[in-house]
Simulated scan of single mutants.
Amino acid sequence: MDRADLPTPVLILDRAAMDRNIAAMAGFAAARGLALRPHAKTHKSAEIARRQISAGAAGICCAKLAEAEALAAEGITDIHLTSPVVRPDAIARLVALNGRIALSLVADHPENVAALARAATRPLTVFIDVDPGAHRTGVASPEAALALADAIAAEPNLRLGGVQYYCGSQQHIESRADRFAAVERLTAYLASVLDMLKTAGHAIPIVTGAGTGTFAIDAELGVLTELQCGSYIFLDREYEDCELTGGGAPVFERALFLDATVISANHATHVTLDAGLKAMATDAGPPRPIRPGATYRFTGDEHGALIADSLPKLGERVTLQPPHCDPTVNLHDAYRVVEGDRVVDCWTITARGRGT
């Protein structure tokens, strides 16, 4: 069918642009001897995960256990969980999943390590999550990292997989120079943690982290061995506003869009679209209209205002670039996959709403 015949609001995926983004990141990592493990919290799609792995990714990351379960059920067999799993019911699910796929996860507390060890029925790979200063998850000092490494090493059913270090709040610093300075300072701290672990005799085979905003910087600094970038496949408005080039970083393309329709056109300053708070995440501000000189303003659950000197007419379609792709994707059931203006496929968003 034609893209213009899709009901709106509708999530649109440009397959060719996304595939070029996947290939560009895979090539970047391979050229620098780095493993690539893209974060599936961005797309939540088994089809996209398969395309990333086919392009050379070592596996994928998931933020939540339920995401991993959903993707594993669709044949994804190498998954790293980037958040701790602590509830007894969730640990039981984790142990069951570990019996079916290659699975790893992070921990940041000795009590969690002990609970994982008690439940494990076969070797379970655990990474030490190190807090870069966000105070979200992760051990808070090199000494705490060493104590956790000792606790993991003491358990026969656990294996120390390495260290995770994700500088989330630094990903969207718009200036590359400012972003580089921030990540360089934080990486020096990570190096001190790794030095303490290695001096104590712990092998750290993998140091995983990075994101779309910092992957080229992390590659240049040379401490991480694995990249967890996610949003590069779509290039949402929030990342497009950042200076991502430099350090040999590839140029990514817009690949994810939201099509909306003008449903009211009674004012000289704006028209009303049928896409509002229920169609897009709002944490990163408004979307970017793919229309010269136009801006968008949220006006309610179902509606948004398009403001421009040259306004579209009643019934006309408007394309928007989502502000923050991860939570926007979580609001939709499927991607309508296009080549040009032709709809060529529909991909279920496999792990939509899997937040447990």
Rank of each mutant, 00 (worst) to 15 (best):
A72Q: 05
A219P: 03
P289C: 03
L65G: 05
G168N: 06
A119R: 02
V251E: 14
E47Q: 11
R3Y: 09
T295P: 01
I76Q: 06
L103N: 04
V183N: 05
A40E: 07
L148C: 10
K64N: 08
Y296Q: 10
A249N: 10
D218K: 00
T187Q: 11
Q52G: 00
C346N: 00
A200M: 09
D345I: 09
R20F: 06
A17P: 13
F234M: 12
A188N: 11
A191P: 00
N330F: 05
L94N: 02
L36D: 02
L158M: 08
P323G: 15
P156M: 10
Y296N: 04
G99D: 03
P7I: 04
F257V: 06
A40Y: 05
D259Q: 15
L34Q: 04
H43G: 05
A114E: 13
G162Y: 10
E184C: 02
A63L: 13
A114W: 00
R118G: 12
I263N: 03
P287C: 15
L146F: 09
G285Q: 08
T319W: 03
E174C: 00
D326F: 09
T328N: 10
G353K: 02
T269F: 13
A210K: 03
T295H: 08
K198C: 12
I76P: 06
L186V: 07
L197I: 06
T77L: 09
R93N: 03
A275G: 01
R297W: 04
V139L: 04
L116N: 03
A26K: 01
T212N: 03
T295M: 12
A181G: 04
L244H: 09
Q164T: 13
A181L: 04
C62E: 09
L11C: 04
L224W: 13
R317N: 12
